[in-house]
């Protein structure tokens, strides 16, 4: 027997009553604890926040150490080459558009966020300078910055 075509299969499946399945484990004890002792949960939340802050602080220390190691390292790598090329492109665009009004007010905030992402990826690259996934992300963040600068300075007719 041949199977029905896709449209038929889709219609039949969507028109049937939904088949629901249960979770593998019993979730009720956790729910019961959470609703019976909300303050305990808040305390746990606060512990979690402190743990998170401690983790962020640890990451900052690691990043500082990485920067120090990077300063000591003189050999140029792919990240530096990419950064040099991008910085020139970005500066060129900013000079080109300096007298042109932007279409949005918060583009500099958006650019700042992308620059923060750029810094974070660069920090990760300090430990793995030739990691292809990190390099790809860095290149994407650079491209997003260029696109943003271009987009907010594009003439209005281009945005229609």
């Amino acid at each position: 027997m041949s199977k029905p075509d896709f449209e038929q299969f889709l219609n039949d499946s969507l028109n049937q009553p939904k088949q629901d399945i249960g979770p593998d484990k019993n979730l009720w004890p956790g729910i019961e604890r959470a609703i019976a002792h909300p303050t305990e949960q808040q305390a746990e939340q606060s512990r979690f926040t402190w743990n998170k802050l401690a983790a962020v602080a640890a990451c900052c220390v690691a990043a500082l150490l990485s920067v120090q190691l990077f300063v000591a390292q003189t050999e140029p790598n792919t990240m530096i080459a990419m950064s040099d090329y991008f910085t020139k492109q970005k500066q060129g665009l900013l000079v080109q558009y300096q007298n042109q009004p932007a279409l949005t007010d918060n583009w500099q905030q958006q650019l700042k966020e992308l620059e923060e992402a750029e810094s974070a990826i660069k920090q990760a690259l300090e430990n793995e300078p030739e990691n292809p996934a990190l390099l790809q992300m860095l290149s994407q963040v650079y491209q997003q910055q260029l696109d943003l600068i271009n987009k907010v300075h594009a003439p209005k007719w281009q945005t229609i």
């Binding site: 629901d20 399945i21 979770p23 979730l27 609703i35 019976a36």
Partner: peptide, 21 residues
């Protein structure tokens, strides 16, 4: 009433879990 809530949970847990999944 938490006992009633446990019963409501039993009635709907599959529906909720399946949608989350």
């Amino acid at each position: 009433d938490q006992v009633a809530y446990a019963a409501l949970y039993e009635l709907h847990v599959k529906r909720v879990y399946s949608l989350c999944l």
